[in-house]
Design a protein around this nucleic acid. Structure first.
Lengths: 158, 158
DNA sequence: GCTGAAACCGATAGGAA
DNA sequence: TTCCTATCGGTTTCAGC
């Protein structure tokens, strides 16, 4: 880690990435600080960009959005143009929650969320398969979420 | 969608899943409501579990945690016991951000975040490969994040 | 149901140790 | 640095529409 964060800062980040609705007082007591210095540190972490934003995590199941698909994509023409077009187009699609370029045999890995499998099918046909330069699409459909967090492993021991 | 959410509720959810640090007044004005009813709706959405929690999203890169790996796993013994052991063990590992059971040829898909590829290698050897009943591990390493959001596609048109 | 206002409580900043 | 305190603003409630 090329970062210069104190142990206290790390504690604060750990708390906030598991619950950002804590009051300053509660957070302070959990990290063993009093309010003011704690609040100051939080602000610094915000300013310096360690904390990107605070969001609400919704219950996908209750909202009827519980189909998760990991979708690997290969493009046919590997020219620059084609890649950027694809990336821009994909970033616009709300169903695409995540998209990464990959090493190995696949060009992109997409995590897609839709209402049900029919919708996924329709989504692929209507949007994904229409995109510029697509050669192969491979869909891996998730059944049950065993774990699903947004918290980074700050307490890793490796 | 088997849910009975009004258009206003959906607007509220959309706002909060992109920014949960909005004040009640600001949120109210964005969804075209005044504070009180807006606040009431937010509370109801919390109580009913549509909003699960509010978290801080951290800057993985600044924290030196920018290796993302999608890892598919197959277990050897497909008895109940083996599955639950694996799931419980995996849920404990902070490096495992997400874990899903899958249809198709792989048993599990894991999304893993570590500091660098060396750490990933070490993580796989130390923890993953030691787990009960593992047969195959296939690691797909992400290079660049094109898109990475936690927002569900509430405005999907399909 | 929504609006507006009032009361309360927590967040913020400044000053003292 | 941290702690303490005062002020300010947001949240929450309640009465009226």
């Amino acid at each position: 880690m090329q970062t210069n964060l104190s142990a206290t800062d790390l504690k604060i980040l750990k708390q906030l990435q598991s619950d950002a609705s804590l009051t300053a007082a509660e957070l302070a007591s959990r990290v063993g600080l009093s309010q003011s210095p704690c609040w100051r540190r939080v602000n610094k972490l915000l300013e310096e960009g360690y904390i990107q934003k605070r969001v609400a995590l919704l219950n996908a199941e209750k909202l009827g959005m519980d189909v998760v698909v990991f979708c690997s994509v290969n493009l046919s023409a590997h020219g620059r143009q084609s890649l950027e077009e694809f990336e821009q187009a994909v970033a616009q699609l709300p169903e695409v929650i995540e998209c990464y370029t990959m090493t190995g045999t696949m060009d992109y890995m997409l995590k897609i969320v839709t209402r049900d499998i029919r919708h996924y099918e329709k989504f692929v046909r209507t949007f994904l398969a229409q995109m510029p330069g697509i050669q192969e699409i491979h869909s891996n459909i998730a059944v049950t979420a065993i774990k699903n967090t947004t918290a980074l492993p700050l307490d890793t021991q490796l």
